[in-house]
């Protein structure tokens, strides 16, 4: 009779010969904790990315490219971290993505609403050189009269061709709006926030070629 290969005997022999031992439990616990903390950290950073992007898109930053990229990177990272956890396989991939996005949007919304986003933006501006160049504030871009960009609040409307504005640094400007293109929702009325494209014609004089509403683009 052919001798049956005894796999269990051979395996036990190998275990004893090589003095193999089970890997200590703490190694698996550390790995598991690491993955969950990584997932949690990714969610937090995703929420920050979304919160600050929201802050930007609400009219404060030109285009928050950096923060949108941060949000995308951490969506992907959060997904990969979660996928490596023990129970992740029980969930369809799309459900995991939706969950991560929903958490990011909800917490990101809170980050934006309670002012954390703006505080972080200001803190980064003060601590990191060149931050503002990478994430330019709308206000700064539209406050360069020597380059033909001026913005502020209308303080007085003299007539249909001229008005006065106070820029965001507090200076008063006389604006010549004769033949200016008034875009979309822009309204020339006291109290309105507007931005102008044109040319500086004097110390506090500005010839406007285009008048736009402060919020939004051309419309």
């Amino acid at each position: 009779m052919k001798k049956k290969t005894n796999i269990s005997d051979k395996a036990l022999e190998l275990i004893n010969q090589q003095k193999l031992k089970p890997i200590p439990r703490w190694e698996f616990v550390v790995k598991s904790w690491g993955l969950w903390m990584g997932f949690g950290a990714s969610l937090v950073l995703l929420a920050l990315g979304i919160g600050i992007s929201w802050f930007g898109l609400a009219g404060n930053i030109i285009v928050p490219h950096l923060w949108l990229l941060v949000a995308i990177v951490f969506v992907v990272l959060a997904y990969f971290m979660f996928e490596k956890t023990k129970r992740a396989y029980r969930f369809e991939k799309w459900r995991i993505f939706i969950f991560i996005l929903v958490v990011g949007l909800v917490v990101g919304g809170v980050v934006f609403r309670v002012g954390i986003a703006s505080r972080i933006d200001r803190k980064l501006e003060s601590d990191i050189p060149y931050y503002r160049q990478i994430v330019p504030m709308k206000m700064e871009v539209w406050s360069r009269p020597e380059m033909g960009y001026l913005s502020g609040v209308i303080t007085k409307v003299a007539d249909e061709d001229s008005f006065e504005i106070r820029d965001f640094e507090g200076s008063l400007w006389n604006v010549d709006s004769q033949d200016s293109l008034i875009r979309g929702r822009a309204v020339i009325e006291t109290g309105e926030e507007i931005k102008l494209i044109g040319k500086r014609t004097g110390k506090n004089q500005f010839k406007a070629e285009e008048v736009r509403p402060w919020s939004g683009g051309r419309n």
């Binding site: 395996a11 275990i15 193999l20 089970p22 890997i23 200590p24 439990r25 190694e27 698996f28």
Partner: peptide, 8 residues
């Protein structure tokens, strides 16, 4: 063998 090593 793998199962034994990963028992924990």
């Amino acid at each position: 063998i793998k199962a034994y090593e990963h028992l924990n």
